Computed example of a mutant assay.
Amino acid sequence: MEEMAVTIIAIALMIIGSFGIIFLKKPFDKVVMFSILDAGFVLAVVLFKYLDVALFIALADPIATIVYLIAIVKIKEIRSKKVESGEIHD
């Protein structure tokens, strides 16, 4: 019975994270929702006893999150430079 409750929690985390990524507008909010989705995914992988895959996910996820954050910052910098130079006309 406990395993079923943990499975429901994992599914709920993945659904909440997915809807958050889809419907939220701000990029940094999407990073938070991605972390929630990832927590549910890791939990589901551990429940299926793929511990080697869970280890790889646990090691690769922080790297992917850092790359995503760097990309967000660079895009904001490029957009602000284009607005300052007058290349974008809204």
Rank of each mutant, 00 (worst) to 15 (best):
residue 80 S to V: 06
residue 8 I to R: 09
residue 84 E to W: 12
residue 81 K to P: 04
residue 69 L to Q: 03
residue 80 S to C: 07
residue 72 I to N: 11
residue 83 V to I: 15
residue 26 K to D: 09
residue 31 V to A: 13
residue 27 P to W: 06
residue 47 L to H: 08
residue 76 K to I: 06
residue 40 G to R: 01
residue 24 L to R: 01
residue 33 M to C: 11
residue 49 K to D: 08
residue 35 S to L: 12
residue 54 A to K: 08
residue 84 E to D: 10
residue 13 L to S: 03
residue 12 A to Q: 08
residue 81 K to C: 02
residue 89 H to K: 11
residue 6 V to I: 15
residue 73 V to K: 15
residue 53 V to Y: 09
residue 35 S to G: 12
residue 65 T to V: 15
residue 2 E to L: 13
residue 48 F to T: 01
residue 81 K to E: 09
residue 37 L to V: 01
residue 21 I to F: 05
residue 29 D to T: 00
residue 1 M to R: 00
residue 15 I to C: 14
residue 31 V to Q: 09
residue 57 I to P: 01
residue 75 I to C: 07
residue 15 I to Y: 14
residue 27 P to Q: 00
residue 69 L to C: 14
residue 74 K to Q: 12
residue 52 D to L: 10
residue 46 V to S: 04
residue 81 K to N: 05
residue 86 G to Y: 05
residue 11 I to N: 08
residue 17 G to S: 06
residue 39 A to H: 07
residue 60 A to I: 11
residue 1 M to F: 00
residue 72 I to S: 12
residue 56 F to V: 06
residue 74 K to D: 02
residue 48 F to A: 06
residue 14 M to I: 10
residue 32 V to M: 11
residue 46 V to G: 01
residue 48 F to H: 02
residue 53 V to N: 06
residue 75 I to T: 10
residue 18 S to F: 13
residue 56 F to G: 00
residue 85 S to C: 09
residue 63 I to T: 07
residue 64 A to Y: 03
residue 51 L to G: 02
residue 15 I to M: 15
residue 84 E to F: 14
residue 17 G to M: 00
residue 48 F to N: 02
residue 52 D to V: 03
residue 15 I to L: 15
residue 82 K to W: 03
residue 49 K to E: 10
residue 23 F to W: 09
residue 42 V to G: 01
residue 7 T to S: 14
residue 77 E to Q: 14
residue 50 Y to H: 09
residue 2 E to F: 13
residue 32 V to H: 04
residue 10 A to T: 08
residue 3 E to L: 14
residue 36 I to H: 07
residue 41 F to N: 10
residue 15 I to A: 15
residue 38 D to I: 04
residue 7 T to K: 13
residue 68 Y to H: 01
residue 57 I to K: 07
residue 51 L to Q: 06
residue 39 A to M: 14
residue 31 V to M: 14
residue 34 F to A: 11
residue 85 S to Y: 14
residue 3 E to F: 05
residue 31 V to H: 11
residue 58 A to I: 10
residue 16 I to D: 00
residue 64 A to H: 01
